[in-house]
Amino acid sequence: MFVLVVLQDTLKIIPSEFTKSREDALKDEINSKYANRVLHDIGLCIHAHDLLEVDEGFVQHSEGWIWVKVKFRMIVFRPFKEEILVGRIRSASPMGIQVSMGFFDDIDISADQMPSGSEFNSTEGVWVWRYEGSELFMDLDEPVRFRVLDSNFLDVSPPRPKIGDVDSVPASHPPPYSLTCSIKDDGLGLLSWWE
């Protein structure tokens, strides 16, 4: 589910960071810039793994900080196709269920990827799998095992208000990175079903 990605960037170290070792200061700067950020076609950046190359840095005219060109390795969340993962059910609707892994929430399992014989129970607000006469409820917050079918990257620019319409901010914008998943196979679905 995690991969190492090699990146290169020019980062600045501000004077208050000079007390730290160069390595720690750079790692902190990398993390504050990249952690929890989705890079297009790369994935969700988790944390700096290590630094590969660090140049000596330079101070620009009239500035008090150092610019350092650094090549580093980043831990990135990007599951491969067909990978099996475990998460928890976050919400359910007639369209399907959404699964969360805590640090990553945009996991969708659509209605056609449910086990055959499942249907949405609108009174309970959860999905139910009818299997050999028994009703298996997919309650919220239950751990669920799923298979990754596809990952979708969306190039989202920051929401831009329309001219003359200062107050309106789009209520929700689509996630930049989401996973399309399935629980339609033996062994997938709630962990408790297969124990």
């Binding site: 589910m1 995690f2 991969v3 190492l4 990605v5 090699v6 990146l7 290169q8 960037d9 890079l39 076609d41 790369i42 988790i46 944390h47 090549k71 390795r73 831990i75 491969f80």
Partner: peptide, 16 residues
């Protein structure tokens, strides 16, 4: 920012 290598290695959960 420049991407040098999109996937240098796979990591186990343990390493992360």
């Amino acid at each position: 920012m420049e991407i040098i290598n999109r996937q240098e290695a796979l990591l186990t959960n343990y390493e992360v």
